[in-house]
């Protein structure tokens, strides 16, 4: 099994650490699976997770050993090829988005998120960005909130009041 990765002859920066973390994670999950019901019986709730996590431990160990043997790839830098700043920035942006989504509400957070990320990635005039942001937000809002009645987090905006006051204009 160990010599089965002919195409992965070199390793990227960070690969060894990643694979080692997977081994650690797998062992932890195996321990957690064991805690469910131990090795009590084949039909216990823990039997299947135990088998799956055992497979993870085994497979991750093999992969890790393979990366130990593989020579480092040349001319590949972690910060440039594997985890460029732009990826980190967007990841951070999404993280912030998901944390504040519930308290600020969907409309506000999405507006800010779209505006910043489009401005950052597309780099046109803020007005163009604003127009694209508003347009796409309106389309998403109509599809999800109005047509499919997914009540998106309202946060600080009294959406339902606004909606009912708008509909009451028609009545």
């Amino acid at each position: 099994m160990s010599s089965q990765s002919p195409s992965l002859t070199t390793r990227k920066p960070g690969e060894r650490i990643f694979c080692f973390l997977l081994v650690l994670g797998s062992v932890y999950l195996f321990w957690q699976a064991y805690k469910i019901s131990g090795f009590s019986s084949l039909s216990s709730p823990g039997a299947f997770p135990l088998a799956a996590s055992a497979a993870m431990v085994l497979a991750s160990c093999i992969t890790f050993l393979n990366t130990l043997k593989a020579p480092a790839a040349e001319d590949v830098r972690f910060v440039y090829h594997c985890f460029p700043p732009v990826v980190a920035f967007i990841m951070a942006l999404i993280l912030i988005y998901s944390v504040v989504l519930e308290s600020l509400g969907f409309v506000l957070t999405s507006f800010v998120f779209l505006f910043i990320s489009i401005q950052f990635l597309y780099r046109r005039s803020p007005l163009t960005t604003l127009a694209i942001t508003l347009l796409s937000l309106i389309v998403v809002y109509i599809i999800f909130r109005l047509v499919f009645q997914v009540v998106l987090p309202e946060g600080i905006m009294p959406e339902r009041e606004i909606l009912s006051s708008i509909t009451s204009l028609w009545r």
Binding site: M157, P158, R160, E161, I162, L163, S164, S165, I166, S168
Partner: peptide
């Protein structure tokens, strides 16, 4: 527009909350 609608909605709800349940979905 949103601001206007928002203000309108707030004034609507504050006057109607108790008198006229339900005022929204």
């Amino acid at each position: 527009k949103t601001t206007i609608a928002l203000l309108a909605a707030l004034s609507l709800t504050s006057s109607l909350t108790l008198a006229d349940y339900p005022t929204k979905d």
